[in-house]
């Protein structure tokens, strides 16, 4: 395992672990959506992540409590609006989580390649 160039420990970047806070697909989708913009309106995030109002509301509350996003309430004209944005902690969490996912995929690919090479030589 220590010879594996895809192992982050070998590359000296430290192990990238999956972030439990954003491991759930809905939470991950919300964080990923917000990472692509500075701020997004509640309805835009709901449509973009293809979830219901209540699911997004619960997800946003949980992520806000974890310090991953900030919720800003305001008005556009007389209509109340809720704006969501990613915090630096959330941004870092997503980066680490993506690195961990990439690590899983590349390690599996590497193992697959090694197995197939072993099969050919045998």
């Amino acid at each position: 395992m220590t010879d594996d160039p895809l192992n982050p420990e070998v590359r000296g970047t430290g192990p990238a672990a999956l972030d439990e806070t954003i491991h759930h697909p809905t939470r991950l989708a919300v964080i990923a959506f917000l990472s692509a913009c500075d701020e997004a309106e509640f309805a835009a995030v709901r449509d973009g992540c293809q979830v219901s109002d209540s699911v997004l509301s619960k997800t946003a509350s949980a992520l806000e409590a974890a310090g991953y996003l900030t919720v800003r309430k305001g008005y556009v004209g007389k209509r109340p609006r809720t704006w969501l944005s990613l915090t630096p902690v959330g941004q870092q969490g997503l980066v680490r989580h993506i690195a961990a996912l990439q690590n899983i995929v590349s390690t599996a690919r590497n193992l697959g390649a090694t197995t197939s090479r072993g099969g050919e030589s045998a």
Binding site: A29, A32, A36, I98
Partner: peptide, 9 residues
């Protein structure tokens, strides 16, 4: 999914 959601945003 992360890629798709980012693209949608």
């Amino acid at each position: 999914n992360i890629g798709a959601v980012k693209e949608r945003a």
